[in-house]
Design a protein around this nucleic acid. Sequence first.
DNA 1: CTGAAAGCGCTAACAT
DNA 2: ATGTTAGCGCTTTCAG
Lengths: 358, 358
Amino acid sequence: MSEPIRRCTVADVAREAKVSKAQAARALGGYGAVSEEVASRVQTAARRLGYRPNELARSMSTGRSRSLGVVVGDIENPHFGLATRGISDAARQAGYHVILANTDENPETERNAVRVLMDKRVDGLIVAPCRSNDNAHLQEVINAGRALVLFDRMVAGLEVEVISARFERAAERATQRLIAQGHHRIAYLTSLRLERPYERLTDLGSSPVAQRVAGMQRALAQAGQVLDPGLVRANATNREAIARICDELFSRPSPPTALMASDNLIALDLLRELKRRGLEIPRDISLVMYDDFPWTELVTPALTVIAQPVYAMGHEAANRLIRQLHGEASEPIPNFDAELIERGSIGPVTCATPRQGR
Amino acid sequence: MSEPIRRCTVADVAREAKVSKAQAARALGGYGAVSEEVASRVQTAARRLGYRPNELARSMSTGRSRSLGVVVGDIENPHFGLATRGISDAARQAGYHVILANTDENPETERNAVRVLMDKRVDGLIVAPCRSNDNAHLQEVINAGRALVLFDRMVAGLEVEVISARFERAAERATQRLIAQGHHRIAYLTSLRLERPYERLTDLGSSPVAQRVAGMQRALAQAGQVLDPGLVRANATNREAIARICDELFSRPSPPTALMASDNLIALDLLRELKRRGLEIPRDISLVMYDDFPWTELVTPALTVIAQPVYAMGHEAANRLIRQLHGEASEPIPNFDAELIERGSIGPVTCATPRQGR
DNA sequence: CTGAAAGCGCTAACAT
DNA sequence: ATGTTAGCGCTTTCAG
């Protein structure tokens, strides 16, 4: 019931150790010059009193909070779970803490989160932005002189480091494999928000999604084919949207014979949707998913995926951010190359065009 | 290059609005009494100057940081991903932030994390403790008068709210189903750390694991059977451990005909291990897993699982914590009943005892 | 309703 | 090496 419980402060320790407050603080904080004698007396006193530093006060005077803000779309998504793990492992090792903010892939929430984290005086920010053209709030971060690293996606007009895998090569290879099996109508589904139907590569800016589509395009070009823009579908953000996209895709005169899912959530919904329509992988349709998780090996057929080193990327993002904070020179960003892992979800295209079930 | 960039403070706003610092602070913080006149002048000045409050300073004087510490074993585990999502959604709604700490299921790291979070002056803590008998650091939290809610597991000798699903009923039902299919040697694998081989229910304290085993026991008893203690295996914390446990289990004179995996990580490893041994589910062996995730429906066969409302539990944990902080009376903790979801991984026991493949 | 001044717990000059 | 004195930016008495 006793309410605030005045915690013991440096002043208390100083009194107990019979030294000045400053000296006690130095011994406790391990920063100035302190004699052995005094140091041990202070340590003893601190232990006896159960002293714990008030990090808030410390941050207040130093101006640094030793905490990193992490802003992701959805921590429930294992992709971000893994990334966050990488980030927080690196942070902990360097003595930093992680303040997590979920944006629900909502730009408004993201703006807000970034602002509040700044108000909390995080030393730096790792943001997986949900929009690539919405940079005002992130520019503010830079203007305020706070460190910033982007994760997964870049943002137009923002000169900051971006940690993101390189997808073009793997996308190209995956498409080649598909083509080798006779596919040429290959649809690509992404959760990227686009106001208008996809028309050309430049609609995608320089996002990773652009790399993925570019890779497809290149592989198709090598085979003397062109990518039908109508097969690149954005806004695959939830089950209903994905069902709708499937409806449209499969009611085309020439429906796709292969699907590429831009993330595991899309793949999961797609798998359900295909099952519902009685379409069997890889007999009736082929599937490639971006990202790799343990379960992809265990579904039937095992999924052919384009893996990216998400944990390592998170780790690197945090390390770079921290290096920025310490004013250390940053080496070039390592190449995180996405990698095609072939399992069983690509099969030869069948003569029978899969028609819409339902 | 300009280093610290002195951010604008209440003093600046006050000067600009030609009022006292105190008055500006009141207008900005929305607390004391302020005339319309002054309020609007201050707001205007604040906007013009791009004022943003320093939450650190605010916390410093109020003693409250509006942030919650969340300590979990492994954010990469979708179980905790979901829980964290529930927590942070509830927190955000109430204007709180979440500071996340990963313990890697390591007691030492956990103690440390709890301490540092306390030092950062979080208002309250949600902890998924990795040990049920290690309560000193958590007792400190209580002694310091800080709010605490436990997640998933309880801790001996600690009088705090625990949010955890109730498993006995579902465990019993699952076991009944198994028995109905002729199983009676049912093994249970948990990541719970136990120094010595399991012998009796009391070895498990009052953990959820105890509920699960109790449920099994009860169902077996109803069928006139007893649970062989050798089939309850703790320390299934990683792939190697799980492989070793399988070795032991399947080299018994009478190996188990059904397996219950205490979490999704164990199930994943088990699935791999069974495949490696050429054991097919549900023909050669049956499997039930705790927790439910989208992919469990998509593996072949679809997994029979014991689901728990993890998101809701996280949400509730945060809400209760916040209610504690506000000194509001807490209603009784709702019952989060785990639920058996029958899919395809339970089959009839076959005559041929599965022998070790290797 | 408004203002002056004290203080949260710490670090950082500046002396000694 | 040690002590003294100011702050950090905010909230909070306490007067008026």
